[in-house]
Design a protein around this nucleic acid. Sequence first.
DNA 1: CCACCTACTTGACGTACGTCAAAGACCTTG
DNA 2: CAAGGTCTTTGACGTACGTCAAGTAGGTGG
Lengths: 116, 116
Amino acid sequence: MPKALPVIDATAPVCCAPVAAAPMGEEAALEVAVRLKALADPVRLRLLSLLLAGEEVCTCDLAPAVGLTEATVSHHLGQLKKAGFVSGERRGMNVYYRAHRDALGAIAQVIDPACC
Amino acid sequence: MPKALPVIDATAPVCCAPVAAAPMGEEAALEVAVRLKALADPVRLRLLSLLLAGEEVCTCDLAPAVGLTEATVSHHLGQLKKAGFVSGERRGMNVYYRAHRDALGAIAQVIDPACC
DNA sequence: CCACCTACTTGACGTACGTCAAAGACCTTG
DNA sequence: CAAGGTCTTTGACGTACGTCAAGTAGGTGG
């Protein structure tokens, strides 16, 4: 990662051939890697599963659920949002987050060698 | 990650409920996260796709394919091996690596919200 | 308008990661 | 055994990441 940090937009679901389909190009690998990196954290996985369980959850409920500061949770949610896995909407005093199942399914299909 | 680094064995395919099934426990999240972290790198994704394309490939062929030092490629292959995605076997002067499709499929199923 | 609450941003700290050069380990061929 | 090729390990360097404390922005209610 000491490579020049490539800032790319990853808010949309991945759209590229599965890993097993053919040798990946450098750009395609990066597209997949940035999204996987967003998922490759225990806290973010737990946040995602909480969001997938309930329809909408606000930060104030998520923070105690994972046992971390609201600041830290906000940071993780920001990472997930940048990767397109969640989106948040402010309603009143709270911000309600929602998981995007399609984005999750898309990255899963890229990884799965059986699915294609 | 400043948390006490938890050294766990991840050589076997993941075996836990999908993320969407129910709120993940701390241990389950870690099991998935360490494997995803191994996958969350452009170089390792390219190496995996190269291994999935051919049956067996040796380091000497992989290094030039990704444009990195053999030392670096060896390090990445070690990461993938620790995560159970590949395994290498020495035959003569070369070490031949092979991808494990089942381990890849297992982590894909855990991620996919549709698959369960 | 003034407290007050929720959520995000900033700065700082320590740890982990990716990379390479150099040295070591393993095997084969003369 | 010596020479050479292939891989892995070690050490070092710079960058990125996760975490929190503190400060700021946005919204509500007296």
